[in-house]
């Protein structure tokens, strides 16, 4: 799993830090390092930017995997610097922000926007492939999720906005249903696409979604 993030504008980060002058920065060694949004280099870059903006950076660290249990230990090791700060600026996805917030009684500020759960198809190219809907349809759609890959999340085939295999919203993006049709045709399984798909159950797991594994 890769949690794909994008750094917020520095103006937005500064706005969130209004009145919080002493900052401890936390990066993440996993997804945010791979997306170059919260690795060592970005954390150090943020440290410089904050200092230039007049903030005091009390310390920084890159936790191996911010959403992991070990985060608690890593935070404890830096408790001195953290306790002397007004807040922790977290350069990980929202999972890390939550995890850190659950261990430390400090204001936790996200420096990143969490965009989607995706795969890296080519170096630097990340694609959303799963919307985590709770009712996987990949078995009927030749392994391409229409809920994710179709802009409108349509379940019964393409809309009229498809053009030469591309999407009306962005001609750089493929039309999911053209791809699904191609693959199913090659597999001689087009009957799957002919089958009517009823309205989706958007409450398969009502939000907020939780599950207890025993």
């Amino acid at each position: 799993m890769k949690s794909i993030t994008k750094q917020k504008t520095f103006d937005e980060i500064k706005e969130q830090l209004d009145g919080l002058d002493k900052v401890f920065i936390v990066g993440c060694g996993t997804c945010a390092t791979m997306t170059k949004t919260g690795g060592r280099d970005e954390v150090l870059g943020m440290k410089d930017s904050l200092q230039e903006a007049g903030k005091i950076v009390s310390g920084w660290m890159v936790i191996p995997t911010a959403c992991d249990e070990m985060t608690e230990v890593a935070l404890k090791e830096n408790s001195g610097a953290i306790n002397s700060s007004n807040c922790i600026l977290v350069m990980s996805c929202a999972l890390g922000v939550h995890k850190i917030g659950s261990y430390v009684d400090k204001v936790v500020i996200p420096a990143l926007d969490t965009l989607f759960i995706g795969l890296e198809n080519e170096p630097g190219n990340f694609h959303e492939v799963c919307a985590q809907c709770g009712q996987c349809v990949l078995g009927q759609t030749a392994g391409i999720c229409p809920l994710t890959a179709c802009h409108k999340g349509l379940l019964n085939g393409p809309c009229g906005g498809t053009n030469k295999g591309k999407c009306e919203v962005d001609i750089m993006k493929d039309c999911a249903w053209t791809l699904i049709h191609q693959r199913l045709e090659a597999q001689d399984r087009l009957d799957l696409m002919r089958k009517y798909q009823p309205p989706k159950n958007y409450q398969a797991t009502p939000r907020p979604r939780t599950i207890k594994i025993v």
């Binding site: 085939g157 393409p158 053009n163 249903w177 053209t178 049709h181 087009l190 696409m193 002919r194």
Partner: peptide, 14 residues
């Protein structure tokens, strides 16, 4: 005039 036409016709029948 959809291009490609086959997925469009499948939807038409649906």
């Amino acid at each position: 005039e959809a291009d490609p036409i086959k997925p469009q016709l499948l939807k038409f029948e649906k």
